[in-house]
Amino acid sequence: MDHLLEIRNLKITTLRGKDKVYLLDSVDLSIRKKCSFGVVGESGCGKSITASAILGLLPYPLRVAEGSIRFDSRDGEKELLKLSRKEMRQVRGEEISMIFQEPMTSLDPIFTVEMQMFEALSFHHPGMGKGEMREIALEMLHRVNIPRPEQTLASYAHQLSGGQLQRIMIAIALINNPRLLLADEPTTALDVTIQAQILHLMNDLKEQRDTSIIMITHDLGVIAETCEEVAVFYAGQIVEQAQVVELFTHTAHPYTKGLLRAVTSLGGAQRKLYTIPGIVPPGGQWSRGCRFAERCEQCMEKCREEMPALREIAPGHFCRCFLQDREVEA
């Protein structure tokens, strides 16, 4: 397998009354080894459920309707969607792990940090002794720059700050040396100076280990600072995908352009902010044409009738827009 993770034609549905509603529609993603891959989009675009689907953690009534998620694990290639619950548990935390958005609520309040770190270790290494586990736990806390590791091990979640908790979450996620780390908005709940600390830490850790990172965020700034490749999600689809520099310098899709203009016009000279008109259409209320058509300034008749395909417009740069086709043909 060339890639660490290959998602093909992934579709996720939910039930609304008796109707089947698609929340994620034919998503293809390939994550290279030792790569940090950004997934960006607004709330409800399907970025977080993609991560849940990879880990087999989709909450009821969401389910995978179609597709495949192939993962290059230590003992050969695996089709994650076909694994049994027991086999999936072996992958989770050992080969693929996850950091969640809110560090304040993702640690268990009634166990010490030590117990929660040991749990992650002993689950995958049943024979490991207390002394060895403690050594590894201390080493990990040291790696994530926790000031007093010994004291922190004995602490409960409420005794620590948000930044420290997120460091501990990262330490727990990396304790088994996973091949893939899913980070779902890891800095959204944190202050900007703490965000800078955590992003630095993640960049350093990526350099030291061969862990690939999927960074899920709504913040293009976080993507620009940490990722090599990026996919932009809109209404359950990928609308644009490219290397980070290519995406920011040769932005092709009107939605990506809009997002970028909306954030960069902040602090700019003009008083009136650029806005994308309208709102993100909720899941299941998508038109049969281009899903961005209603909000697009360059919308053509064709866009309302027909869904544009995700096409390669430059080497490694994919875009889902008819305007690009025209430029390619011309």
């Binding site: 965000q195 800078a196 293009l220 700034g221 620009a224 600072e225 980070v244 970028l260």
Partner: peptide, 23 residues
Amino acid sequence: ALLSAVPSHDPLHRSRHIVLEGD
């Protein structure tokens, strides 16, 4: 430090953060 911590929207010029120690 606060102003430098804001992520830049330009991957070619990743901002040089003044990273504050501690909480």
